[in-house]
């Protein structure tokens, strides 16, 4: 029990479990296989990007350009692969999209480390820049007629499980292995919890931070290719506000904004908690007006999780 209190994820895990239990008691079909699958698919992009952002936040930095980057990547992916525009093979389009995402992540990392500019400002600038670039590219159009192979990434299933769920599982497993089983993972936490000591121990802060920003850009690419083709059209507004959602989820999951603390599993809990609010409201059957309260309840959940976390920490060991 003591160990549970000590875990920073306990606050969010408790709220998540309580929510699921209460909703299931009211409406048993909440935990049906289809609904679980739907909710996980909905949370997939948040979980994938969350894995990267957690590591960025653990190093004491932040990346708020992820939503705009997803918008740009969606536009580029659409323009590259649709027959109406460039009509490149889907595989080429996907690779180029991942490449662009990684490149933008690298630029963010470069500006933060070599340029020594605060990451919140750099990525705020990037948020604005990329959204502008997306709007210029899209020029108010909608991209329609996505090729079937691309749609498969968003809507298809392999052995009965959605492609996006396989991808999420793979990304989470890889991220946890990176954190727990590799020297690089340990360096990420070392850099975040005590930069001076890490530097004295001979770690390159620049390389570690470059890595986490680049990884996040790459993961935004992955999230884009498995989530955007779920819809048949691409418009320029994709990803607006995603940064707030994912940053909030990472914080709710127990990561510390000043670096050094945060876990992949905590972030996953955070994304799930915030991501299922709309479904919860629908399953509680409280009337059609309730969906308007989605954001208010999300905000309330965050405050509750934060306060629980606060008091869990104040408990003497």
């Amino acid at each position: 029990m003591k160990a549970l209190y000590a875990r920073r994820e306990s606050g969010v895990a408790l709220v998540l479990v309580l929510t699921v239990v209460v909703v299931t008691l009211v409406n048993h079909s909440f935990l049906s296989a289809t609904n679980i699958s739907d909710m996980l698919v909905q949370c997939a992009p948040g979980m994938i990007i969350g894995c990267g952002l957690t590591l960025v936040i653990v190093t004491g930095e932040i990346d708020i350009s992820i939503g705009s980057l997803m918008g740009l990547l969606a536009a580029v992916m659409g323009l590259l692969t649709t027959p109406e525009h460039l009509g490149l093979p889907v595989s080429v389009g996907v690779v180029l999209t991942l490449f662009l995402g990684t490149a933008v992540g690298l630029v963010n990392g470069f500006l933060v480390t070599v340029g020594r500019a605060p990451s919140i400002i750099v990525t705020l600038g990037m948020l604005t820049t990329l959204r502008g670039a997306t709007e210029l590219l899209m020029d108010g159009r909608w991209i329609t007629g996505l090729p079937a192979k691309l749609r498969f990434l968003g809507t298809g299933s392999v052995t009965g499980v959605r492609v996006s769920l396989w991808t999420v599982a793979l990304v989470i497993a890889a991220a946890m292995m990176l954190v727990r089983g590799t020297p690089l993972g340990q360096r990420i936490y070392a850099v975040g919890s005590n930069p001076q000591a890490a530097r004295l121990a001979g770690l390159s802060l620049i390389r570690v931070k470059l890595f986490v920003f680049t990884l996040t850009g790459f993961l935004v690419g992955i999230a884009t290719i498995i989530s955007v083709p779920q819809l048949s059209t691409i418009e320029s507004g994709i990803g607006i506000g995603l940064e707030l959602f994912v940053v909030t989820a990472v914080m709710v999951g127990g990561a510390s904004i000043s670096g050094g603390k945060g876990t992949i599993i905590g972030t996953i809990f955070g994304v799930l908690l915030l991501g299922i609010v709309r479904t919860v409201l629908i399953f509680l059957n409280l009337g059609e007006h309730m969906v308007y309260w989605e954001r208010a309840i999300q905000g309330g959940f965050i405050l509750v999780a934060v306060v629980i976390d606060r008091f869990a920490k104040r408990r003497p060991n």
Binding site: L244, T248, E294, R295, G299, I302
Partner: peptide
């Protein structure tokens, strides 16, 4: 964190 939470909450109450 506080103002991220209230960013959601206040707009949510407005909605």
């Amino acid at each position: 964190i506080v103002t991220l939470a209230t960013l959601s909450a206040y707009r949510g109450i407005a909605e």
